[in-house]
């Protein structure tokens, strides 16, 4: 029998919640035990969904890069183009933030309507990222 990492974390959470926490008398330590259970449960959920989440994030990222490149065409400002190139290779928070920052930096040159349209595309993808994070937040 193989135990997956997320199953192991979930079982550890259960042990903290049902056995260790109730057995601890000192209030601060008791709180820590129950908090460990909460954190391990969240990590277990995130680990279980990590592969599917990464797949979805990659698909969204590529779609955003393609949509913005298509919309901007040859008029793409250099800073924005660089940020899109980075995001094409790298789905980190930093790469997404660079794209958002470069959009705001080019706002005047793009014009209000174009800026809103481009930011709207980015925000759709960010909304999806956020929704995945919220699945473990509460």
């Amino acid at each position: 029998m193989t135990v997956t990492p997320h199953e192991l974390l979930a079982q550890m959470a259960s042990t903290f919640r049902h056995e260790i926490g109730p057995a601890v008398d000192e209030p601060f330590a008791k709180t820590q035990a129950f908090m460990a259970a909460v954190i391990l449960s969240k990590l277990a959920g995130q680990l279980q969904a990590a592969e599917a989440d990464a797949q979805a994030a990659g698909d969204e990222r590529r779609a955003v890069v393609a949509a913005l490149r298509a919309r901007l065409g040859s008029a793409c400002p250099a800073r924005l183009g660089d940020a899109l190139t980075d995001l094409g290779h790298d789905g980190s928070d930093a790469a997404w933030s660079r794209l958002v920052g470069s959009l705001y930096a080019e706002r005047d040159g793009l014009g209000a309507d174009e800026f809103d349209a481009l930011l709207g595309v980015v925000r759709s993808a960010l909304r999806a990222r956020l929704d995945r994070a919220l699945a473990y937040a509460s």
């Binding site: 908090m35 954190i39 969240k42 925000r123 759709s124 956020l130």
Partner: peptide, 25 residues
């Protein structure tokens, strides 16, 4: 080393969700 501080990592998306809704997404 207070684990309650570690738990706050999951509070960030909740705050950002409220902000994103206020910004229109």
């Amino acid at each position: 080393t207070d684990l309650r501080l570690a738990r706050t990592a999951w509070s960030i998306p909740v705050v950002l969700d409220n902000a994103a809704r206020a910004l229109g997404y």
